[in-house]
Computed example of a mutant assay.
Amino acid sequence: MSATQETWFDQPLVFTIADRHVRGRLIRLGPVLGTVMAAHSYPPVAEKLLAEALVLTALLGSTLKGEDGQLTLQAQTGGGPIELLVCDYKDGELRGYLKFDAERLAEVGADPTLFALFGEGFLAITFDQASAERYQGIVPLEGASIGEAAEHYFEQSEQIPSLIKIAARHDAEAGCVAGGLLLQHLPEGEVGRDRLHVRHDHPEWAHARTIAETLRDAELTDPATSLETLAWRLFHEDEVRVERGRFVSRGCRCSIDYFAGVLSKFPEGERREMADEAGLVNVDCAFCSRIFPISLDEIAAHGGSA
Rank of each mutant, 00 (worst) to 15 (best):
S305V: 12
V242E: 12
P112M: 02
L85C: 11
A39K: 13
E148Q: 14
V262H: 12
R134D: 08
Q5A: 09
V14S: 04
G119A: 04
E155H: 08
L26W: 05
R209A: 15
A306L: 14
T126L: 11
L181T: 00
D284C: 04
E237C: 03
D297S: 14
P112R: 02
R28I: 03
H207W: 15
P112L: 02
H170G: 03
T7H: 09
C252Q: 07
S226D: 05
E151Y: 02
V248E: 09
R25D: 06
V55Q: 01
S305Q: 07
Y42T: 04
G121A: 10
H302D: 06
F266W: 03
L59A: 06
A53E: 14
F100H: 08
M1A: 08
R272Y: 09
G261D: 10
L13W: 09
T210V: 10
E133N: 05
L59T: 10
P43C: 06
I211R: 14
G69L: 12
Q129N: 10
T77R: 00
L215E: 14
L280A: 11
F287D: 00
F122R: 11
G279R: 09
E148I: 01
F118E: 03
A275V: 04
G261F: 05
A75Q: 14
E151V: 14
E204M: 13
L94M: 07
N282R: 15
Q5R: 11
F100M: 05
V45N: 00
A301C: 04
Y153N: 01
G147N: 06
T16R: 13
G61T: 13
T225L: 15
A300R: 06
I160Q: 11
V108F: 00
G279N: 08
T16V: 06
V32K: 05
N282Q: 14
L64P: 00
F292R: 06
E237F: 05
R216S: 14
L105W: 04
G143I: 02
L49M: 13
A3T: 08
S157Y: 12
I17G: 02
A53V: 12
A224G: 05
Q5W: 14
Y153L: 11
C288S: 02
D284A: 08
R28C: 04
P44R: 02
R28T: 04
D111H: 12
R253L: 07
R272M: 08
A208P: 08
L296T: 01
T35S: 10
E155A: 15
G69S: 04
R25M: 06
A178Y: 01
A231I: 00
C87Q: 13
L141R: 01
A218S: 15
D238Q: 15
S249C: 06
F9D: 01
V283A: 01
A260I: 01
D217W: 05
V177S: 00
A124D: 07
S157E: 10
R246L: 11
L85D: 12
T35N: 10
I17P: 02
S145M: 07
A132N: 05
F115E: 10
H200E: 11
C285K: 04
M1F: 09
G61R: 02
A18N: 13
A212S: 15
G269A: 13
A39H: 15
H197V: 08
G269V: 06
P44D: 02
Q129D: 10
F15K: 08
L123R: 03
A102Q: 07
K165L: 13
F127P: 03
F9E: 01
S255E: 12
A167E: 00
A150N: 03
G245D: 13
D222H: 09
V248F: 03
F259N: 12
G179D: 01
D297E: 15
